[in-house]
Design a protein around this nucleic acid. Structure first.
Lengths: 171, 171
DNA sequence: GGCCGGGTGTTATCTTATAACATAACGTTC
DNA sequence: GAACGTTATGTTATAAGATAACACCCGGCC
């Protein structure tokens, strides 16, 4: 249970950050992860991953489909779904169930339970890695005699940037 | 934050329980909740709720649609979706996002964050109410500056009844 | 060459969900 | 008890999301 740090105190990126860096980092990590596992990060899979990382807003499979159609010849839905399934199996993307959409994983390679904050105003999703939440979930489920395989936490709400200008000490 | 008890130690019902009692309890509670709020539990809504409670397996909207079609004249999808939305707004059913399906709420009236264990073998879903999980989630999100509105936890795995006969002390 | 397996292409279809508008039921007011 | 506003339901069509089934291609290997 080597936990690098308790959690990330700022899961939402600043509005203006160097996003190309997010993308290249993600692609680099993906290459490493796939190489380590002997999995083939083909051209399509790479492009789909890149499109998922196009922004921090979860991307629907058909959004990706449309965007991919602009980069290369038309591809059909199964192609995209297959790529997404591959990326998910490698831990490179997460699926946001409540949105039927996908986001890039911030911590590929480190097994973790998905924890997502979804802003209903700006549409961005941020991944948390709060060890205390994960521990609480694992403990609760274990006590219930449940053999846990894939826990996810999804929270809908307002990100710091989208909240009204702070009435009183409610933050 | 009046919490009746820390959590329910046995979220999954026994295979053989008096399920009619689950249903009648749910319908009674629903009537009370709606009466208290001045919401109208109409015939369709009641029937949909009853169908959701038909079992402890999450029911898809179109399953309900089909079942409802057997009880009364054909109804179209929007009718079912509207009823489900109403029931959800009243806190009488939960949506299991990862299954696109609905289950009856075990604790209508008590506001809580949804916590579900979903057995991938038997298909049943059980609702937990672990205050420690909820507290951990709320704390983590508050620290991230996120204004939380609707957190849900969904865990896929194997329920106690569906696990292989217990190798060693892994529970 | 011939075979195998993984990846992709292709077609069709299935499931899930909602938009948009029409009608009916209910409650209130006078 | 007629008129009105409100809420609930009916109806039609379609959008959005996902997958089944089968064909083909390509690289590696014997």
């Amino acid at each position: 249970m080597a936990r690098t740090r308790a959690h990330n105190p700022r899961p939402f990126k600043r509005e203006k950050h160097d996003h190309r860096r997010c993308v290249t980092t993600a692609l680099d990590r993906a290459a490493k992860v796939c190489a380590a596992k002997g999995a083939r990060l083909t051209a399509i899979r790479r492009q789909v991953l890149e499109l998922v990382w196009q922004s921090h807003r979860p991307a629907g499979a058909y959004d990706i489909l449309a965007a991919l159609g602009r980069k290369r010849d038309y591809v059909a839905p199964p192609t995209v779904y297959r790529a997404l399934e591959f990326l998910r199996a490698q831990g490179l993307v997460h699926r946001i169930e409540s949105l039927n959409a996908f986001v890039g994983c911030e911590r590929p390679g480190e097994p973790h339970c998905g924890q997502f904050l979804i802003c209903r105003a700006c549409g961005r999703a941020a991944e948390m890695a709060d060890g205390r939440i994960e521990a609480a979930v694992r403990r609760g489920l274990a006590e219930a005699g449940f053999a846990l395989e894939r826990p996810t936490v999804e929270a809908l709400g307002l990100c710091p940037d989208c909240q009204p200008p702070a009435e009183a000490g409610n933050a």
